[in-house]
Amino acid sequence: MSATIIDKMRKERSRRSVEEDRLNGASSTAGSRLDELHVLSRQGLWGLLIFLVASAVALCFRDQTLGGLLPADLLEQLGPRPPVMLIDIVLGVSTISSLIVISGRLYHAARPGSTWNHLCFRLSFFVLYFVSDALASHMNVVFISGLAVLALQHYHLSQYTSRAMEGKTGGAGSMIR
């Protein structure tokens, strides 16, 4: 007997929620999806802006070295610095890999990857070159590679969100996680 009462209560709740949705209209959910797409479309710009600001800070510190800022005994405790050649290889491979992945997602109209992952990875190279005392000689390479990756990521985000807003790729509901 209590099971039938519970079932009736559930049916009444679902009937009320259907009526409320009908009264509120689907525009409220579509509006929130559009808002989410607008936020997603701005991620690329925020990534580029943060990268440019961090690059300006790195430019100010390019003539500084870790050896000049820390005492010698602390540097000995930290151990050897990473070899610059190894950082160069990782920068090259990661840049090419990022460009290939973003281009593939762009070609297949797939959901863009996280801008913040690309941004953090690009910024880490400023830190690595600073620790290796090679920031001054590699500043341009890090800047250009980061700008290329983040600009392509922004282009992909803007293309993806504009298609989703126009409704050309399966509706905005399937676009947002």
Rank of each mutant, 00 (worst) to 15 (best):
M1H: 09
I5D: 12
I6A: 14
D7N: 15
M9V: 10
R13C: 09
S14C: 06
R16V: 14
S17T: 12
R22V: 10
L34R: 12
D35H: 11
E36I: 05
L37K: 00
H38I: 12
H38C: 10
V39K: 15
Q43N: 09
G47H: 04
L49M: 13
V53H: 06
V53L: 14
V53S: 12
A54H: 02
A56M: 13
L59W: 15
L59M: 08
L59R: 05
F61H: 08
T65K: 05
L66P: 00
G67P: 04
D73E: 15
L78I: 07
G79D: 01
P80R: 12
P82E: 05
L86V: 14
L86S: 14
I87M: 03
D88Q: 12
G92H: 06
S94Y: 04
I96C: 07
I96V: 15
S97F: 14
I100A: 15
V101C: 06
V101G: 01
I102W: 02
R105I: 03
L106A: 11
P112T: 01
S114M: 04
W116S: 15
N117G: 13
N117Q: 08
N117T: 11
C120N: 11
F121K: 02
R122V: 08
L123Q: 02
L123I: 04
S124G: 10
F125I: 02
V127Q: 09
V127D: 06
F130C: 01
V131D: 04
D133G: 05
A136K: 08
S137A: 15
S137F: 09
N140E: 13
L147S: 06
A148I: 07
V149R: 03
A151D: 00
L152D: 02
Q153R: 00
Y155N: 00
H156S: 03
S158P: 04
Y160E: 01
T161L: 03
S162H: 10
E166I: 05
G171C: 08
A172I: 04
G173D: 12
G173F: 10
M175T: 09
M175W: 06
R177H: 11
